[in-house]
Lab assay of single mutants.
Amino acid sequence: KNAAKIVNEALNQGITLFVSDNKLKYKTNRDSIPSELLEEWKQHKQELIDFLTQLES
């Protein structure tokens, strides 16, 4: 999976991924984040940080 797909899947579940101080963060109104999503974010962390940083610049 690529970073764009992961970010879109998160958005579809009401979760916004973003970068703050070079760290991957998220915002959501959900009570909890599915563990498989958290695991996927960890596996692709640097790719996600790079992707989101490019989007914001």
Rank of each mutant, 00 (worst) to 15 (best):
T28K: 03
K1P: 08
W41G: 01
L24S: 00
Y26M: 04
K42R: 15
L11D: 04
V19S: 04
I49V: 07
T28A: 06
W41I: 08
L52V: 02
K1T: 10
H44A: 06
G14H: 05
Q54M: 13
N12M: 15
L37D: 02
I6D: 01
E36W: 09
N29W: 10
Y26D: 00
S57R: 11
I33K: 01
R30C: 06
L48S: 00
V7Y: 15
L48V: 05
K5I: 13
I33A: 03
K42Q: 12
A10P: 00
D50C: 07
D31K: 09
S32K: 10
I15P: 00
E56L: 12
A10C: 04
K25W: 15
Q54G: 11
G14F: 04
S35I: 14
P34N: 05
S57Y: 06
V19I: 07
L55A: 10
L38E: 06
K25H: 14
K42W: 11
I33Q: 02
K42M: 14
K27S: 09
K27P: 01
S57L: 14
A3R: 02
S35P: 14
T16G: 03
W41L: 06
N2Y: 10
L55T: 10
N12F: 09
I15K: 01
I33F: 07
E9L: 05
N22H: 10
A3I: 11
I33M: 04
E40I: 14
K25Y: 15
K45T: 14
K45R: 14
F18R: 03
L11F: 10
N2R: 12
T53D: 05
I49G: 01
F18H: 05
N12I: 14
L52D: 00
L52H: 00
A3C: 10
D31E: 13
P34F: 03
D21Q: 09
V7I: 13
W41D: 00
I15F: 08
A10H: 01
R30F: 05
N8S: 14
Q43V: 12
T16M: 12
K27H: 10
E47S: 08
L37W: 07
L52T: 01
K25A: 11
I49R: 02
S57Q: 13
A3W: 05
A4R: 09
K27M: 08
N2S: 15
L24H: 00
N29H: 11
N8G: 10
L48Y: 00
L24R: 00
G14M: 04
N2P: 12
T28N: 04
A4C: 13
P34M: 03
Q46M: 08
L24M: 03
K5Q: 15
F18W: 07
S57F: 08
E36A: 12
N8Y: 14
I6F: 03
E39I: 09
P34I: 03
I49K: 03
T53H: 07
L55R: 13
K23F: 07
Q54C: 11
T16H: 12
H44Y: 15
Q43I: 13
E40Y: 10
K23Q: 14
E56H: 13
N12Y: 09
